[in-house]
Amino acid sequence: MPGILLRDAGDGIRILSIDNAAKKNALDNALCGELAEKVSSLAADKDARVVIVTGEGGAFCAGADLPDVFGTMGDDINDIRDHLGDVVYQSFLGLRELKMPVISAVEGPAVGAGLNMALAADVVIASPSADFAATFSRIGLHQGGGCTPLLVETLGRQRAMKLLLEGGRLTGQQAYDLGLVAALADDPMDAALELAKTTADLDPRLARNIKTAVKLASESGFDAALQFETWAQAYTATQPGIQKMIAKLSKKK
């Protein structure tokens, strides 16, 4: 039976996975609801230090299950908009709101909503043969779910525009070459776990503050990020580990 899996991998690492192999992990309304619940539980999980998002059976997520998602909403534009924003989009965009770092491990298709979900993570690790696809325009559908800002953020305005107009797709290698993906790995899950273990070893507050600083730099500009990181660096400078290191270095002078 399709579902959203949430596993504790130890050391504060959580693995969130779509299990709908028969449809290459496409998201229907029920799975969107379950995904939103799991993301909410992660937000409340005080022991979670890092989250890995992936899909079962060699696919990340083939997008929305269109007959289920769009075929049940009627024809009132306001009702459709509300359902898309409150149920469908929020299910995966909630990942961006998590305070801890989020890593997506992408193998196989990441199409439409699946592309958005992959890019909602802080770091994307993919196999060279992964399939990142923004094929909305090919079926006459405007992109949604944050696809526009996510692509502009990662590819830049012109490349995002070209991909959306073409309804195009990128292999993992192409996505890496264009900056959509942070790293390539034959086994993205293993690589994601390695990064997750490194992240989990950090003071959780340090990891959260690194994420906040990067987000501010991306969304609010240099001055906002500088102001935050000045405070965050001052905070870490008062911590015992740094204090001991400074004392040790001072004795060597």
Rank of each mutant, 00 (worst) to 15 (best):
M1W: 06
P2W: 10
L6A: 08
D8Y: 07
A9E: 08
D11T: 09
I13E: 01
R14A: 12
R14V: 10
I15T: 14
L16A: 07
S17L: 14
S17C: 15
S17K: 13
I18W: 11
A22M: 02
K23Q: 04
N25V: 04
A26H: 01
N29L: 10
C32G: 05
L35V: 04
S40K: 12
L42F: 10
A43N: 06
A48N: 05
A48W: 04
V51H: 08
E56H: 03
G57E: 06
G57Y: 03
A59F: 12
F60W: 03
A62D: 10
D65N: 11
D65R: 00
V69Y: 06
F70Q: 04
G74W: 10
D75V: 14
D75A: 13
D76C: 15
D79H: 02
D82T: 05
H83D: 05
V88F: 01
Y89P: 00
G94R: 06
R96L: 12
M100W: 09
S104F: 01
V106P: 11
E107N: 09
P109I: 05
A110K: 03
V111Y: 00
M117L: 14
L119S: 06
A121C: 11
D122E: 02
D122S: 04
V124T: 11
A126M: 03
A126F: 01
S129Q: 12
S129R: 13
A130H: 01
D131M: 13
A133F: 06
T135H: 05
F136Q: 01
S137V: 11
G140W: 00
G146L: 01
C147N: 09
P149I: 01
L150V: 11
L151P: 07
V152F: 00
E153G: 10
T154H: 15
G156Y: 02
R157L: 15
A160P: 07
M161Q: 14
K162Q: 10
L163A: 08
G167E: 14
L170Q: 06
T171H: 07
T171I: 09
Q173S: 11
A175Y: 09
Y176A: 11
G179V: 08
A182I: 02
A185K: 04
A185C: 05
D187C: 13
D187I: 02
P188H: 04
A191F: 03
A192Q: 09
L193E: 08
E194W: 02
E194R: 14
A196H: 01
A196T: 04
K197P: 00
T198H: 03
T199R: 11
R205Q: 13
A213M: 09
A213G: 13
V214D: 08
K215L: 07
S218N: 01
S218M: 02
E219M: 04
G221H: 00
F222W: 03
A224G: 01
A225T: 02
A225W: 00
A225C: 03
F228R: 05
W231Q: 15
Q233F: 06
Y235E: 12
I242V: 11
M245V: 10
A247Y: 00
L249K: 03
L249C: 03
